[in-house]
């Protein structure tokens, strides 16, 4: 195809501009990674570092062993894994119930779930704190697992996937004497793998990053999640801090450690995220 000169100029400008955007996205992370692998002293110098200066893993050793970041890492892992598994199972269960034709009270169930999506958790944080306190859940990881253990969004998303499974299949299974639970576990769950993967990934990311619930329900340092520990490490202390352990490489090592699980699942996230959000958004 013939291209005019102005069109070619546009192409060049466009590529340069997009490269600049990409650079603005990469530099912060490169800077963090490079600093985390620099020595204590080199990381404190004020120059832009995009490659480790005096390569060392001192930062990681300090943050993991001496500042005990392994403990919040463990807490976050427990909350994320247990919370995600429960979230997916419960949301799928609700989704399965809500696709049953002729279930008395279905409309009521659907609208009471839709209504919960209108109430942002942030807006009820004070009463939520009180409820958790009354239940004795303050300073317990259970509070974090329970917070958002099922959500209207995931239920609707999975319901969309389940609706694509032909209902005749479960009908003939019922005639053969299979119970609801068995149909749900052995027919619907395996057939809606893509939906389950989407919800799992969504939930994994948001649990790992969960901040407000942890801030509200956890005060005890031994129960800190990674996000709380990171806030204390990289935001509440600055370079003028009197704590000799808090050199820049140590703080940046903390950031990198928090990113690793997310980077590991990133390739899968890309595959499912768009699909998930579009399905969810169209449903609203």
């Amino acid at each position: 195809m013939h291209k005019s000169i102005s069109s070619k100029i546009f192409d060049v400008v466009n590529i340069v501009f997009l490269l600049l955007i990409v650079v603005s996205m990469i530099i912060p992370f490169l800077n963090v990674a490079a600093l985390s692998f620099s020595s204590n002293l080199a990381s404190m110098s004020s120059s832009i570092i995009l490659w480790p200066k005096e390569f060392s893993i001192e930062g990681y050793k300090t943050v993991w062993d001496r500042l005990d970041l392994w403990l919040p890492f463990l807490n976050s892992s427990i909350v994320t894994v247990v919370g995600t598994v429960m979230h997916v199972l419960l949301s799928a269960t609700a989704a399965y119930v809500l696709i049953q034709p002729g279930l008395p009270g279905k409309r009521f169930l659907v609208s009471s779930i839709l209504l919960t999506m209108m109430v942002p958790h942030e807006a009820i944080m004070i009463p939520l704190y009180i409820v958790n306190k009354d239940l004795g859940l303050i300073n317990s990881l259970y509070a974090l697992i329970i917070s958002g253990v099922v959500s209207g969004f995931s239920i609707l998303l999975l319901r969309n996937f389940f609706q694509q499974v032909p209902y005749e299949m479960s009908e003939s299974a019922k005639i053969d004497g299979a119970g609801e639970l068995r149909i749900f576990l052995t027919m619907y769950l395996p057939l809606a793998k893509a939906g389950l993967a989407t919800v799992t990934l969504f939930e994994f990311v948001s649990r790992w990053n969960q901040f407000m619930a942890a801030l509200l329900f956890i005060n005890d340092q031994s129960k800190y999640t990674l996000q709380l520990a990171l806030k204390a490490l990289i935001i509440d202390t600055d370079s003028t801090s009197s704590n000799f352990l808090m050199t820049t490489n140590v703080r940046m090592a903390g950031v990198v450690i928090a990113l690793i699980p997310l980077l590991l699942i990133y390739p899968y996230v890309q595959k499912y995220f768009v699909k998930g959000i579009m399905v969810g958004a169209n449903k609203e």
Binding site: P28, F29, N209, F211, L230, I235, V255, A258
Partner: peptide, 13 residues
């Protein structure tokens, strides 16, 4: 990428 990370990380950076 930035969408994937928490505000603690992004804010801190």
């Amino acid at each position: 990428l930035p969408h994937l990370f928490s505000w603690v990380v992004i804010g801190g950076i």
